[in-house]
């Protein structure tokens, strides 16, 4: 069952790399959040009963409902539909995703993990989800896509956390979730401001904000 969820996570990863439509990316992040939120249910650990239910519910609520809803709201406000000029194209991004998965499997085979993990796939998948998030942050120009990448990165970290912190109370995770929530909030506000001032949210043109203009920009 955990393996199925992990496979689903990898497929959603590839999908998010391959899609340039922002609403599709937001939906993928929501599904990914929902899938990751369910993982603690299948982990054998000390946390059971009410606390487990609370953790799962809070994660699902934040990751699969509130954050995607907020992103969707931000998207409507700034009115961007798709990534017009990503730095890396869809096919190349997908190939990167596969390479990232391979790298993640290689690294995790070298990683000494002091206790048994519930599934041999959980660490490599967590690593590859994080790598995908990083890649989306650096390869997309739209501010909203970068926020999506940040969320995917956080999904990976969360998965890593629940894989390794079996014995710990998940308070750490919940604290992190709060951080991310605030982070997304700040990012959303920034996106609004970029959009209001410049009528677009293409971050690759933010360098034009400086007092001095780089040569390239001036020649445009």
């Amino acid at each position: 069952m955990v393996d199925g969820i992990l496979m689903l996570l990898v497929l959603l990863n590839l999908f998010s790399l391959g899609s340039t439509r922002i609403s599709a990316s937001i939906r993928v992040v929501a599904y990914q959040g929902a899938a990751i939120g369910l993982v603690p249910l299948f982990l054998p650990g000390k946390i059971t009963g009410g606390i487990l239910a609370a953790i799962v519910l809070v994660t699902l609520l934040v990751k699969a409902v509130i954050l995607p809803w907020f992103l969707r709201y931000a998207q409507k406000r700034v009115n961007v539909r798709r990534e017009e000029k990503p730095f890396v194209g869809a096919s190349t991004s997908i190939l990167f995703g596969v390479a990232a998965l391979g790298t993640a499997f290689f690294i995790s085979s070298r990683l000494p993990i002091p206790f048994a993990v519930v599934s041999p796939f959980i660490v490599p998948v967590a690593l590859s989800v994080s790598l995908t998030g990083f890649f989306i942050i650096i390869s997309r120009a739209e501010a909203l896509s970068q926020v999506v990448g940040y969320l995917i990165l956080e999904n990976g970290i969360y998965l890593f956390g629940i894989a390794l912190l079996l014995e710990q109370p998940l308070l750490v995770e919940l604290g992190m979730l709060l951080d991310v929530f605030v982070g997304i909030f700040v990012m959303g506000i920034t996106v609004f401001h970029i959009s209001r001032e410049f009528e677009h949210t293409d971050t690759s043109r933010l360098s034009g904000l400086a007092d001095w203009l780089p040569e390239v920009r001036r020649n445009e």
Binding site: M7, V10, L11, L14, G18, S91, I94, L95, G97, V98, L101, G102, F105, S109, P120, F121, P124
Partner: peptide, 17 residues
């Protein structure tokens, strides 16, 4: 088709583990 190839490589990686 590149996406399909990516899926099959993912499957291969998972199975080869």
């Amino acid at each position: 088709l590149t996406a399909a190839a990516a899926l099959s490589v993912v499957a291969l990686i998972f199975l080869a583990k």
